[in-house]
């Protein structure tokens, strides 16, 4: 099953490679990974999307916790959470496709953030599924380039991940 892990870790050189190294050394999957500093400059927050059986996810969580620089790990799947990913997608937009692309962007609540005579660049935010659905919905042939951030996640309601 797909899981979203949220990790607070020391904002130190090498901490990221420890996490990534752990996943490759122990043959765990990384579907996506995002990381950046938080309001506390000594801490980074990472979101890893992974998949595996319950036993594997349990081991991943335990192994992450074992890393000295990891402060906290939570599996967002364990309670309600919100997930967002951003995609920038550059598409061919000429002739009748131009109108169609604008319409599709609107339907998916995307924004066109760059325009040339032949192209649109669309910014789209949502769950990873929604971004996937957009790609499915448009004609493959018009896609020139896509770049996705990978999912970030946060717990719903008043629950917070803090030290």
């Amino acid at each position: 099953m797909r899981h979203i892990l949220s990790i607070l870790l020391e904002n130190e050189a090498g901490a990221l490679s420890r996490v990534v190294g752990l996943f490759s050394a122990r043959a765990y999957n990384i579907d996506s990974l995002t990381v950046s500093t938080t309001e506390d400059p000594t801490l980074s927050r990472m979101t890893i999307v992974t998949h595996g059986s319950d036993e594997v996810i349990e081991q991943i969580t335990k192994q992450l916790n074992k890393l000295i620089e990891v402060v906290k790990v939570i599996d967002l799947n364990e309670s309600e959470h919100i997930e967002r990913e951003m995609m920038l997608i550059k598409v061919r937009a000429t002739g009748k496709d131009r109108e169609e692309m604008k319409r599709m962007a609107d339907i998916f609540r995307g924004r066109i953030i760059d325009v040339t005579e032949k192209t649109y660049t669309i910014e789209l935010t949502g769950t990873s599924d929604k971004l996937g659905a957009f790609i499915e919905a448009i004609d493959r042939a018009v896609i020139l380039e896509t770049v996705r951030t990978g999912a970030s996640g946060i717990g719903r309601g008043e629950r917070v991940l803090k030290i």
Binding site: E55, E58, Q59, K62, Q63, N65, K66
Partner: peptide
């Protein structure tokens, strides 16, 4: 003492 040793190979 190491939680990751527990239920690793055997539940």
């Amino acid at each position: 003492v190491d939680p990751s040793s527990i239920s690793k190979r055997v539940k």
